[in-house]
Design a binder for these strands. Structure first.
Lengths: 214, 214
DNA sequence: CCCACTATATATAAATT
DNA sequence: TAATTTATATATAGTGG
């Protein structure tokens, strides 16, 4: 900008960088305010300095803008299904993927220390990843099967108990409280045990620790 | 700025306003990019035009920055918390979460293996792998917890049945077949439900060959 | 960290095409 | 409607407090 064009790359000198940050940050926020006022637009700017200090401008309030941003993104995804929108979808997905990768990179530092898989080749790591995927499916299937068996056993036993109890009741001419409640709740409790394992993906993502926080 | 200072107020002429919006919007986004690159800062800009079109810049990914913003705001809030700022926090959190959901759902398919992962670096693949690993654990824990709860319910019900039946037996002076078999098998079948449910999955998983590799 | 100065690069309002 | 030009306002790197 002055006395020598700047290069569009990180300023290496720390002091210069800090000064430039201060000036340009103010400039950016000023421009943002001008844009919002002059052109009647909704503008939000978020800036984090290297040391984590927050600077912001928001013409309509940050939550409102963030909310609108979310709704806009959602709309784009739902959008029509012409031939062209497929390309857009691809682009969106690619962008999302990059975003997701950033998330993973970020959460790595937070949640895990560095382990030493970095010596593996890309292909090897890909193999590991897909293997883990298959493992997940196998494990889930196996576990589901095991638990389902247990539950089936319990159900069978309970049926026996109920039948026997029914016989007792017949003899005694009374109806037990337990029998009544069981009839009410049986359906709800055991509907899960028979489901398939094909929806691994959804559950997997939902299970992400970072994701849970929100 | 040119040929007459601008006033910091809405441009009334519609055409002029739109032209100004286009130019200033580009300028703002450029400045934002420059700030992020030159000063190594995390910068996000969201602009909605009057007609609702979205323009954005985000140096580190919009969800990440929104997430960081939310967490930062939350931190600040710890000091004084009036009822209004709490509501705003809720909204912020919701918006942040929703955006994150959007991005995660969009990228779900790709991450879970339908695209070739070979274009990613070793580190990135490592992230994905360990994320899957941790996700696996979470999913497993959740499932185990769910099933354990079911089993615990069943056990509780069965105890009730048995007690009631015992009372019947007392009256009738007989011992039922079901009661006998239950006494034999109770230990084996139901040992899971008594102790902590979180360990069920781990034991299961460690026993599987696929998991050992990681 | 912020302020002030200055020389220059950039941004942009308005006119033109 | 959008690109190009022009003239001027603004932003800002470098410098010194």
């Amino acid at each position: 900008m002055v006395r020598g064009k700047i290069q569009l790359k990180r300023i290496e000198n720390v002091a210069s960088r800090q000064v430039a940050f201060s000036k340009r940050r103010n400039g950016l926020l000023k421009k943002a305010r001008e844009l919002s006022v002059l052109c009647d637009a909704e503008v939000s700017v978020i800036v984090f300095s290297q040391r984590g200090r927050l600077f912001e401008f928001s013409s309509h309030g940050m939550p409102k803008t963030m909310d609108r941003y979310y709704r806009h993104a959602k709309q784009l995804q739902i959008g029509g299904s012409d031939s062209d929108s497929h390309l857009q979808q691809q682009k969106l997905e690619a962008a999302s993927m990059a975003t997701k990768i950033e998330f993973l990179e970020q959460s790595k530092r937070k949640l895990l220390g560095q382990c030493s898989l970095s010596s593996y080749s890309s292909d090897e790591l890909q193999d590991i990843a897909s293997q883990l995927e298959r493992s997940l499916i196998n494990v889930r299937a196996k576990k589901a099967q095991l638990f389902s068996e247990q539950i089936r056993e319990l159900n069978a036993k309970e049926r026996l108990l109920l039948e026997e109890q029914a016989r007792f009741c017949e003899k005694c001419g009374a109806k037990s409280w337990v029998q009544v409640t069981h009839e009410q709740e049986n359906e709800t409790y055991f509907s899960l045990s028979g489901n398939s394992s094909s929806e691994v993906g959804t559950e997997l993502l939902i299970g992400l620790p970072e994701f849970r926080k929100f």
